[in-house]
Each structure stands twice: as C-alpha cells, then as structure tokens.
Computed example of a mutant assay.
Amino acid sequence: MNIQTTLQSVLIAAAINLSIAVQVHAQEWILTPQTYVGFDVKSMGFSIVKGKFEQVQSSMRFDPAAPQNASAQFLMDVNSLSLSKPSLEDMIFGEDLFYVEKYPTATFNSHEFVSLGNNQYRIKGDLTLRGITRPVILDTSLKPNPSDPQLIDVQSKTVLNRSDFGMKKAFAGIGEKVNIEVSGQWQLK
C-alpha cells in the first residue's frame, strides 16, 4: 500500500467519523402546539384573511454547529384551518382555492439549510399545495431560548403566488401574494 492510498483511507475514515458525529449531535425537534403556522392574504395593502393551521405535524433535525445537515418537514391538515373571516370558508376551502375535498393536506420538505450567521438561515425546500409542488425559500431565525435549553425560538417567512399552486388569480378581490409564516418555538422531542 502506498502513501497516497493510505492517506486517502485515513481521510475517508475521518469523513465517515465526522459524519457520524454530526448526526449524533443533531437533535430532533417538533413545533410547540402554540406555534403559529399560517398565512395572510392582502389586497390593496389591507389584510383580507388570515388562516392558521390548527393541526400540524412537524419535525426538524438540527444542530447549530452543522446546519448544512439539518432538515425540516411539515404536514398541515388543511381542514384544520381557522380563518379570521369564517364567512369566507366556503370559498377558501372550495375548488377555486385550497380544494380541500381533493387535497386535504399541504406539505413542506426542506432540502437545504443555509446559515447566514447570527442565528439566521435560508431554508430551501419544496411546498406542495393542491397536488402541485414548487420550490420555496423560508427566511428563518432559529434562536436558542434564553430561559429554556429545550426550546428554539423560530420566526420564518416566505411569500408566494396563489396561482403557482393552481389557485384562481385575484378571485373576489383577494390578492395574488400570500404571506406564509411560522412563529413560535421548536421543542426538543
């Protein structure tokens, strides 16, 4: 065995050990029940409707020392949406928007966490609504909770176009842009 082969073997073994060590330190987190996972839609600068998913299954594997290995998933029950304007339920749950009868869930699956420093991250992933999957980027703050090490404070936002997911454009005065937000805490599982 020559020196180059030995060096390659040592480097491969070190990389495997580092990978295993990183996976061991990544912890499993879930969103607290009080965490807001929802959206608001505006038209002409005024809030038309806000919606909160009351039933969300979530998981995040995260180690701040190795964010490149992090992952996050959300499964939202669209039927659990509570709306600021209940009078719009039929329209929002109907075929023109969420089409809940055919698509009862919405999902987000990350594929990359990019650290921007100072507890700020850009989380890239895929959002699926109405059976249509599109890439989205969540601008996210993940800060250790100063009073409880079992919690991470989260603030995450993105903006998307309803029509990208097959929803009717500018229907009944509702704007095209939808503000998505996650605000609350991840807790250690």
Score class of each variant (00 low, 15 high):
Asn2Phe: 10
Ile3Met: 14
Thr6Cys: 10
Gln8Glu: 12
Val10Leu: 15
Ala15Phe: 10
Ala15Gly: 08
Ile16Arg: 12
Ile16Gly: 08
Ile16Lys: 13
Leu18Tyr: 13
Ser19Cys: 10
Ile20Ser: 15
Ala21Gly: 11
Gln23Cys: 08
Gln23Ile: 06
Gln23Ser: 12
Gln23Lys: 09
Val24Leu: 15
Val24Gly: 07
Val24Thr: 09
His25Thr: 15
His25Gln: 15
Ala26Ser: 14
Ala26Gln: 09
Ala26Asn: 07
Gln27Tyr: 07
Gln27Val: 04
Trp29Cys: 03
Ile30Thr: 09
Ile30Asn: 08
Thr32His: 09
Pro33Gly: 08
Gln34Pro: 03
Tyr36His: 11
Val37Met: 03
Gly38Glu: 00
Phe39Asp: 00
Phe39Glu: 01
Asp40Ala: 04
Asp40Ser: 07
Val41Gln: 04
Val41Arg: 02
Phe46Gln: 14
Ser47Glu: 14
Ser47Asp: 14
Ile48Phe: 06
Val49Tyr: 00
Lys52Asn: 06
Lys52Arg: 11
Lys52His: 03
Gln57Asp: 12
Ser58Cys: 06
Ser59Phe: 13
Phe62Tyr: 13
Ala65Phe: 08
Ala66Met: 04
Ala66Arg: 07
Pro67Ala: 01
Asn69Leu: 05
Ala70His: 08
Ser71Asn: 15
Ala72Ile: 07
Ala72Phe: 12
Leu75Pro: 01
Val78Cys: 01
Asn79Gln: 11
Ser80Trp: 07
Ser80His: 04
Leu81Val: 07
Leu81Met: 09
Ser82Cys: 05
Ser84Gln: 07
Lys85Ala: 13
Met91Cys: 04
Tyr99His: 11
Glu101Thr: 15
Lys102Arg: 13
Lys102Ile: 09
Lys102Asn: 13
Tyr103Trp: 12
Tyr103His: 15
Pro104Ile: 04
Thr105Asn: 09
Thr105Met: 07
Thr107Asn: 04
Phe108Pro: 01
Ser110Ile: 04
Ser110Thr: 04
His111Lys: 05
His111Ile: 02
Val114Asn: 09
Ser115Asp: 11
Leu116Ala: 10
Asn118Phe: 05
Asn119Val: 05
Gln120Tyr: 00
Arg122Phe: 00
Ile123Cys: 05
Leu127Lys: 02
Leu129Tyr: 00
Leu129Cys: 03
Leu129Glu: 00
Thr133Asp: 03
Arg134Lys: 12
Arg134Glu: 09
Leu138Ala: 13
Leu138Trp: 07
Asp139Gln: 11
Leu142Phe: 02
Pro144Glu: 11
Pro144Asp: 06
Asn145Leu: 08
Asn145Lys: 07
Pro146Val: 08
Pro149Asp: 12
Gln150Val: 10
Ile152Gly: 05
Val154Cys: 00
Gln155Lys: 14
Ser156Cys: 02
Thr158Ile: 02
Val159Tyr: 00
Val159Asn: 10
Asn161Met: 10
Arg162Phe: 01
Ser163Phe: 05
Gly166Cys: 09
Met167His: 00
Ala172Phe: 15
Ile174Glu: 02
Asn179Ser: 14
Ile180Glu: 02
Val182Gln: 05
Gln185Asn: 13
Gln187Arg: 14
